[in-house]
C-alpha cells in the first residue's frame, strides 16, 4: 500500500469520514459524493475522478497500474462494486457487486449490471450494457435528458442527506 496519501478534491465534494482513501487521488471540481465505507485505493498510480460521481458503500476502486486511472463525469459506482481497469468514460453505472476487472476500458453511458463482470481485457464501447447471469451484452439507447436530470437530483439528495447522518472528511480543496 502506498504510504503517501495525497488527496485533492473540488470544494463541493462530499466525502464521508469513514471513506477509505489511499494514495494519490484527485476529485474533479463538481458535486462528487463518496459514501462511508467506500474504498478508493491508488496503490501504484493515481486515480483521477471527474465531476459528479457517486461512489457508494463498500465500492472499491483500485489502481494497480502506474498510469493514472482516469474516471470521467457522472458515473455511479453502486454498493459493493469492484473497479480496476484502465479508464472509465462518462455517465457509466457499475451496479451493485458489479466487477470491472483487468485492463478493461469503459466508454460512455455503459452499464455493468448487478453481479456482472467484464472480461479481463475488454474495450467496452459506448452504451454497452452487461446484464444477467451470463453477463450478456447489448447496446442501449443514448441517455436522454430525463436520465441526466435524475442523476443530478440523486446527487443533490445525497449532498443534502449524507451530512445529516455522517461526519464529513475535511479535504484540501486546491483543485
Amino acid at each position: 500500500m502506498s504510504s503517501r496519501t495525497k488527496i485533492k478534491a473540488g470544494p463541493k465534494t462530499v466525502v464521508c469520514q469513514e471513506a477509505d482513501l489511499r494514495g494519490e487521488i484527485t476529485i474533479g471540481n463538481g458535486r462528487t459524493v463518496l459514501h462511508p465505507r467506500c474504498r478508493v485505493v491508488a496503490e501504484a498510480g493515481p486515480i483521477v475522478f471527474g465531476a459528479n460521481n457517486i461512489i457508494e458503500e463498500n465500492a472499491v476502486i483500485f489502481n494497480k497500474n502506474t498510469a493514472p486511472l482516469v474516471i470521467g463525469d457522472d458515473n455511479v459506482f453502486e454498493v459493493g462494486c469492484y473497479v480496476e481497469g484502465l479508464g472509465i468514460g462518462n455517465r457509466n453505472v457499475i451496479e451493485a457487486r458489479g466487477r470491472l476487472i483487468g485492463t478493461t476500458t469503459v466508454g460512455n453511458n455503459c452499464v455493468i449490471g448487478s453481479a456482472c463482470t467484464t472480461d479481463l481485457h475488454e474495450k467496452m464501447e459506448d452504451n454497452t450494457v452487461i446484464y444477467g447471469s451470463d453477463c450478456s451484452r447489448r447496446t442501449q439507447e443514448e441517455r436522454n435528458a430525463a436520465q441526466a436530470s435524475l442523476h443530478l437530483r440523486h446527487l443533490e439528495y445525497l449532498r443534502e442527506m449524507l451530512p445529516k447522518y455522517n461526519h464529513l472528511k475535511q479535504l484540501p480543496t486546491d483543485v
Partner: peptide
C-alpha cells in the same frame, strides 16, 4: 431495469 431495454427502441 436489468438490461436497459426501452420500448421506444
Amino acid at each position: 431495469g436489468v438490461c436497459r431495454w426501452d420500448s421506444q427502441e
